[in-house]
Design a protein around this nucleic acid. Structure first.
Lengths: 192, 192
DNA sequence: ATGCTAAACTAACAAACGTTAGGTTGTTTA
DNA sequence: TAAACAACCTAACGTTTGTTAGTTTAGCAT
């Protein structure tokens, strides 16, 4: 895995793991360096500060999420199919890179104001993609919802939350979980 | 508000606010003391350590949540009515004391092993109360679900998440949010 | 008044932290 | 071969941290 990664990428990956374990303020650069196979001070050859590592991690993850969700939605004809794909994607992505996504979900408060605004802007874009699906479902299919934002938040929380408890060796596969949650939301929204 | 609280309770309340703002490792006892109206060292007259403050906060909150949820469920005849009340309670409680509940939801990793086990045990009890509602709904009413745990987690994440974005001056009331989410779950689970 | 106790204070500790300066190594470039 | 550069190292800096020890204050019972 790590053989083809630049040291910069190794540091970012190990930072995601460490920050997820102990939180950003609870993590220190000496341990991060140790995990990345270098000494403490050497991190500053790649990053200007601890804060920059957190920002790069979150900003990069949000950009990637927006791009990949958009890809996944192309070719989905109906809002219903789009919703299913969004649920599936959000869960899969959170489980594929649980460290990066958990950081991005939970460390917003530790970003300095300038960085905070940038990441929140991208988070809002992602959320709006899902809101647009819900709005389309309401307009075209008569889904039973008033405030799309209410449901995009529900989707993001319940699907993103999977990363906090999912175990690969558990009884449920990712596909099963994604299907169950997609069914729950679709049945909950569709007119009876 | 604070006139009738013991200093110990003031410290706990301010700790909840501070820990929610900056996280447990990002908070320091001098600032906590300042907010509680005393000096740094004086905290140790009430608490043995920073860790004990976090533990008391989380343990107390979990006990209270279990007790109040149980109260709220008594007298609810059907699983459907129980589910609605659980959704309502979980949202209301998270918004009434957003600091305490957000800490309890997010700072588990910062508990020392012994304390961790105690709090997780109570969290599991709370989760099982909700699982039991879902199991009863399946057995008695034919709700469309396989793994109750999957849905208790969904409920807890989406309803607890409300505390992260709810604004009292916003357009939606607590009652409206609770109703929308209860409808979503009930319609999603009920047989069509 | 005296002594007792709870509750707060001040000041300092040792450790850990982010960060920086300056040196060493090894590879590429002219 | 020499110069240049990137990558990493070591060692230290100033600050902040949780925590402790010893002291002062205020209220209450004797």
């Amino acid at each position: 895995m790590t053989e083809f990664m630049s040291r910069r990428e190794i540091i970012l990956q190990e930072a995601a793991r460490l920050f997820r374990e102990k939180g950003y303020p609870g993590s220190n650069l000496r341990e991060l360096a140790r995990r990345a196979g270098i000494r403490g001070g050497s991190i500053y050859h790649r990053f200007a500060s601890k804060q920059e590592i957190l920002f790069q991690l979150m900003d990069q993850t949000m950009s990637d999420m927006i791009e990949r969700l958009s890809e996944r939605l192309t070719g989905a004809a109906t809002p219903l199919e789009q919703l299913r794909r969004a649920v599936q994607f959000h869960i899969e992505y959170h489980i594929a890179g649980p460290d990066q996504t958990c950081i991005t979900d939970e460390e917003l408060r530790n970003l300095e104001p300038e960085n905070y605004l940038k990441v929140v802007a991208k988070r809002d874009i992602y959320q709006e993609i899902i809101e647009d699906i819900l709005s389309a479902g309401k307009a075209e299919q008569g889904w039973r919802l008033d405030e799309p934002k209410l449901y995009s938040r529900a989707l993001i929380k319940m699907c993103g939350g999977v990363a906090t408890w999912f175990k690969a060796e558990g009884e449920l596969s990712i596909a099963q979980i994604a299907e169950a949650y997609a069914d729950l939301l679709c049945n909950g929204l569709l007119p009876r």
